[in-house]
Every structure is written in structure tokens, then in C-alpha cells.
Amino acid sequence: MTQPYDTGGLRPATDAPTAGDVPPATAGAPESPATLLERLLKEVENTPGDNSNSGDNSNRGSGQTPPQADPAASPGSGGNPTGGPAYSPAGGATGSPMNGLMGSLLSHPELLQTIPTLISTLGPMMRTGSSGTPGAGIGGRTGGDAGGRTGGDPGGKPGGGAHPGGGFHPDRHTPLLKAIKPYLGPERRQALETMIQLCQVWDTLQDLGISLLPPAADNRGTQPPPPSGKEG
């Protein structure tokens, strides 16, 4: 099986092709996302992996609740099938910011092209905001729960909205950005709204522990956070 990238040691030993393995789509026409997911799901489901999924999450509080496939749980209505509050990636004062982002992005295809540039541009700024706290880079908030979003760094300092170093912090700067919106022209206003929504997406990914930035191997000598899950 050809891989676009050499995944090196990250590739688990169980990642070998299985009996139900389907050839990758890299050789032919591009797969749709759904088809790709289906193929990979079959592969992974056929993989005799370690089924112990409770231990991995035991330190994260949310644990491994068995999926509550409740089709009657108002599909499409925004309800959480588990009965809990609806998932709101960015803390959701405005409902589901992802929906607004999708609409905005899809209605402005040219913005899609700018996303990689924006991410690479914002990356150093976001890293600067946490450069004073090694390990608190993009995964700096992995130690906190959703309530820690406005709590600043994982150390839980009071008034943590002010990041050490005064760097970029979406929650802190979003009100300011919104305040200047009336004074901007239509194009810049649209760009500003998109940026705010991108920040919300970024924030969501941070909460999930996903970093879109390369490891902190910059010239400031900060060390990336340790790979082991030390959250919770």
C-alpha cells in the first residue's frame, strides 16, 4: 500500500493491510471523502486492534460512553443524542459557529484558498502568545476542559484571559475585533468575520488537542509538549 507520506514510526504495526483491505484511491480517480472514510473504516474495523478504549480516556473525564444511537433524538435539530447539551465547538453563544463558518467559507470559495496561508500566518502569532509557558503551545489548553477556555493557560492563573506574553488569544481579541467591525468596509468586514470564525475553529481544534502547526522547533528553543497524555 502506498502512502503519500512516510509515516515512519508513527505507523502502528497493526496498520498492515487486512483481508478486507481495499486498494487506496491514490492510483485512480480521487475518492470522495465519504468513500474514503468508508474504506478506511472497513480497514480499521477489520484490524484486530486493542479494544481497550476505556483506559485511554479514564483520565479525561468524559470516558467511553457507549454510543447512544438514538435515531429519535431529533436528528438535525441540534440536539445531543446523549441527552446532554448540544455540542458547541467554541462555547457557542451564537449556537453553532461551525454552521456560520461553513456558509461563509462555501459562499466565498476564494477564502478557501487563503486558509493555508492564514494558518501559516497566524501560527507564529498563536505560538508567541504561549511562548512564555513551555508546553503551553497549541496544546497548551489540553489540560483544561471547556471551562478552561477563558481561563488562559493551563496553570489556571486568575484572569487567565491575558496570555503570558500578550500574544494572540481568540477569546480575548474577538470582542475587540467585533468592536471595530462597524468602521470597516464590506470586504474587510467579511474578512474580519471569517477570521473570527476561523479562530473559533482553531479554538475547537485546540480543545481537541489537535495542532495544525508543526512542532515547536522554532528558534526560541521551546520544547513541544510531551507526547504522553498528561491531561486531566
Partner: peptide
């Protein structure tokens, strides 16, 4: 380049 080991699976 993506630290999946740090991914909060619960979330």
C-alpha cells in the same frame, strides 16, 4: 506532524 497521541479522545 499531528500529535495524535495528545488527542483528547473523550472530547
Amino acid at each position: 506532524t499531528v500529535p495524535l497521541e495528545q488527542l483528547n479522545m473523550g472530547k
